[in-house]
Amino acid sequence: MSAVVALVGNPREGSRTRTAAVAAAEALGRRIGHDEPPEIVDLAALGPHLLTSRPSSSVEVALELVAGASVLVVASPTYKATYTGLLKAFLDRLPGGALAGTVALPLLVMGDPRHALAVEIHLRPVLVELGALVPTPGLALLEAEIADLDPPLARWAGKVAPQVVAALRQGART
């Protein structure tokens, strides 16, 4: 079981979404007393294996890592006012209840602040449906903020860390 995992739903390798997800997972990890680097599941590398009917060991390992997380930062760029189809294809492979006991934190990277509600309207419900505890509002990051992530992530981590710790104490994985 991993304590903190960043799940990156961007189809491009080396994306800004990955940068934001890893930085968010690290910032939160430090605030909740988990100093180890987060595990990273980057779906860009798994994309070709997600849509085949044949089992893929790399996808199975990723699914187990995500399902075993104590804290899961789920990040995607905003496409058509929601998260990516790649992230949806991955999450659809998790059985119902697979995230029970996991504290999940949705994060969307967007070019326009008008898409900020997408994190709550689209990404939060799928995580709850999979059984995750989502104790805080999701994080909507503007692409312009990625150049200097420290200020927005410090504010975010400071605000959500108490709720994450409380959720972990109330039944999430530790």
Rank of each mutant, 00 (worst) to 15 (best):
Y83A: 04
P37G: 02
A98C: 06
A147M: 04
H122I: 03
L63F: 05
A67T: 06
S70G: 11
H49L: 04
R12I: 03
V74A: 04
V73K: 11
G111A: 10
A161R: 04
G14N: 12
R30Y: 14
P151Q: 06
M110D: 02
M1S: 15
G138F: 00
G171M: 15
R93E: 05
V22H: 09
G131H: 00
P106T: 06
R114P: 01
G131P: 07
A98M: 07
P135I: 13
L127M: 10
L91I: 14
V160F: 09
P152R: 07
L153C: 05
G85H: 03
T19L: 14
P37D: 08
A140I: 00
L168W: 15
S58N: 08
E39L: 09
M1W: 02
E36D: 14
L107D: 00
V73W: 01
I121K: 01
A157V: 11
A21E: 11
A3H: 11
G96F: 08
L86I: 02
E145T: 14
A45W: 08
A89C: 05
P55W: 08
V134H: 11
V128C: 10
G14P: 07
L87R: 05
S53W: 09
R124A: 06
M110F: 11
I32V: 15
D148V: 13
Q163T: 09
G97P: 10
T102I: 10
P151Y: 11
F90L: 01
G9T: 15
A23N: 11
E143L: 01
V160Q: 04
V61D: 05
Y79N: 06
R18N: 03
T17Q: 02
V66Y: 01
V22T: 13
L99C: 00
V126Q: 08
E60D: 09
D92H: 02
G131E: 00
T82A: 09
V59K: 03
V165H: 03
